[in-house]
Amino acid sequence: MSSAAPLGIFDSGVGGLSVLREVRLALPHEDILYLADTAHVPYGARPDEDIRDLTDRAVTALHERGVKAVVNACNTSSAFSLSHLRARFQMPIIGLVPAVKPAVKATRSGKVGVLATPGTLRGTLLADVVAQHAAPAGVEVLRAVSTELVPLVEAGRHDSPEVRRVLRDALTPLAEAGVDQLVLGCTHYPFLAGSIRAEFGDTFTLVDSGAAVARHTRRVLEEAGLLSDRTEPGRVTYLVTGDPEAARPVIATLTRENGHSGRDTTGAALSGEPPRIEPIQT
């Protein structure tokens, strides 16, 4: 495998753009193929086998495009598919683990919340990390679930009255219970940070796994001798299984909101260069 090959990032939709931002910060010289399975989003309420099949198809499509590794930037997919993917593919597969560990370390109330999809709550990864980190520390973990938030983010309505209504319904019980750390257990949810703060102020410290996954991805590529040795910025190409034109404005908006220092995470100027979007079948 060549170090010049692109890095693949996969999500059920556009939520993984929050992980893409962190990967671009940690690995600015890597070319990236970002695959959004917009034809089948959301994954959260799908049967387990359906989630594994869709994930396998997406990672296969990236493998056929010649990627050197894949970041599975979907909490629900990671909860059901990592062992299967690692057995099937020789390239590195990096998955997501809900950021319970740092939340447990930071809590002062002894109560941590996890906002996630039904699939993530049903999978084993969250239960394992709670048993490993929260239970021994005597920290209570309260769970909040929603099937509505991912479709709202996918529709570009991440800062809308509908989102705030759903967040109030889902998170008010956690606030009333004294939760002070809120783990964002879906990569779509960092885009809801503004709405969460608008509704709950500084009640919660928001915790997500994007930066940790980016650091881990860099370590994996270094250890495998797969880091790009280029000095120029890498480029991002977006692959979508649904309608590219429907995805374009949402991707453009979310990458702008993810921007830093006057440039977005694809290296395109905030003022204008459109995202490079291509259709793909999986």
Rank of each mutant, 00 (worst) to 15 (best):
S2D: 15
A116K: 01
A246G: 09
G234C: 06
R215Q: 12
G156E: 02
Y34N: 03
P279N: 08
S12V: 12
L182G: 09
D180G: 10
A106C: 07
V19C: 06
V236A: 04
R263L: 13
P233F: 05
Q90N: 15
D128W: 06
R57D: 12
V141A: 04
R218E: 11
K111V: 10
E176K: 13
V166T: 07
D128A: 15
R165V: 10
Y189L: 01
V19Y: 08
L82G: 05
S81H: 01
R122H: 07
D180P: 00
H29T: 15
R88V: 08
D264N: 15
T147G: 10
L82Y: 08
T38F: 06
R88Q: 12
R108V: 06
R276L: 13
V179M: 04
R276S: 15
A193D: 07
I277P: 05
D208T: 02
S18H: 01
V207K: 00
E278M: 07
H63C: 12
L226Q: 05
I51T: 07
P279V: 01
D11N: 02
I196S: 09
G110I: 05
D128R: 15
F80A: 14
Q181C: 04
A99P: 06
E49N: 07
H40N: 14
L125R: 14
S18Y: 03
P161E: 08
P249M: 12
V97S: 03
L126N: 07
T60M: 14
T76I: 11
L152C: 10
T265D: 11
S78P: 12
L171R: 11
